[in-house]
């Protein structure tokens, strides 16, 4: 395929190829260095230590729950933004995507202000039910969802817009209610975007650190995710931190590879 492109369009210009090669080296080199610097002799011992297993379990659980929350809440939001015409839609879209550009630590501070036990919503919640969110795994999922959902919503909204409204209209002409249309027509057409958005949200959740330690805290077995653990360990054990980074890198690559084989091969949007 590359051969045909070359013969009809001419050789790729060096002006593009050289920076492209530089960009590739720039992105790959640190990962290669990480692989080389990982103390492989102690890798297995590190991998099976109770703290690391705890952190892995919490990371897997919270990133999975984050994706589920995005699917349940983010999909309707993306649909509203793509399909319902209302005043302030542009403003709403801008507001819900703000977490994309917010430094995660600021996101954490904002979450404490809202849902902390003396927060805007947190205090009435505590007074009424006795429930406090910080320092719980729920808080980890909330922090992850806050930073990951915008990625998901943008991805799905894009897919909904690309799919267009004409099939919805046809379904409606044939007598389908709007809910049926959404379920049977709109959503299946936007599925590549839903999958891509889920992967983005999952990846964002996997690496999330700033908002998590700020809002949910950092305690092994309760709220300590892999990135929190890496940061904690890095302070006095860079070797251990490299091992942990390698574990996180390997597990995310494995999951992405598995997903790619299952779903992403046809979805160009990924």
């Amino acid at each position: 395929m590359t051969g045909r492109t070359t013969s009809t369009l001419g050789r790729p210009p060096a002006v593009l190829v050289v920076p492209a090669a530089l960009a590739s080296v720039f992105l790959v080199l640190p990962l290669v260095a990480l692989v080389l610097a990982t103390p492989w002799s102690t890798f297995l011992d590190n991998l099976t230590s109770p703290e690391v297993l705890d952190a892995l379990r919490i990371t897997a659980l919270t990133s999975g729950l984050t994706v589920v929350t995005c699917l349940v809440l983010g999909t309707p939001l993306a649909w509203v933004l793509a399909r319902v015409d209302f005043r302030g839609r542009g403003l709403l879209r801008a507001l819900v995507t703000v977490p994309l550009v917010l430094p995660p630590v600021v996101a954490g501070v904002a979450l404490v202000s809202a849902l902390g036990r003396s927060g805007l919503v947190g205090e009435p919640l505590r007074d009424a039910t006795g429930i406090t969110l910080p320092f719980t795994m729920t808080a980890v999922v909330i922090a992850h969802t806050f930073v990951a959902m915008p990625f998901y919503v943008i991805s799905v909204e894009g897919a909904l817009r690309t799919a267009g409204e004409q099939y919805d209209e046809v379904a409606s002409c044939l007598g389908a209610t709007r809910w049926t249309t959404f379920r049977r027509v709109t959503l299946p057409l936007a599925l590549p975007g839903v999958v891509a958005g889920s992967v983005l949200a999952w990846a964002r959740s996997l690496g999330e650190f700033g908002a998590t330690v700020t809002f949910a805290g950092n305690y092994p077995g309760a709220t300590q995710t892999m990135p929190s653990r890496i940061y904690t360990v890095l302070v006095n054990d860079p070797e251990g931190a490299r091992t942990l980074s390698m574990i996180l890198l390997l597990s995310s690559v494995l999951v992405l590879a598995a997903l790619r084989n299952r779903w992403l091969t046809t979805g160009a949007s990924a």
Binding site: P134, V213, Y219, T232
Partner: peptide
């Protein structure tokens, strides 16, 4: 009673 969080 364990701490709720270990801060950096």
């Amino acid at each position: 009673n364990e701490p709720s969080s270990l801060e950096r």
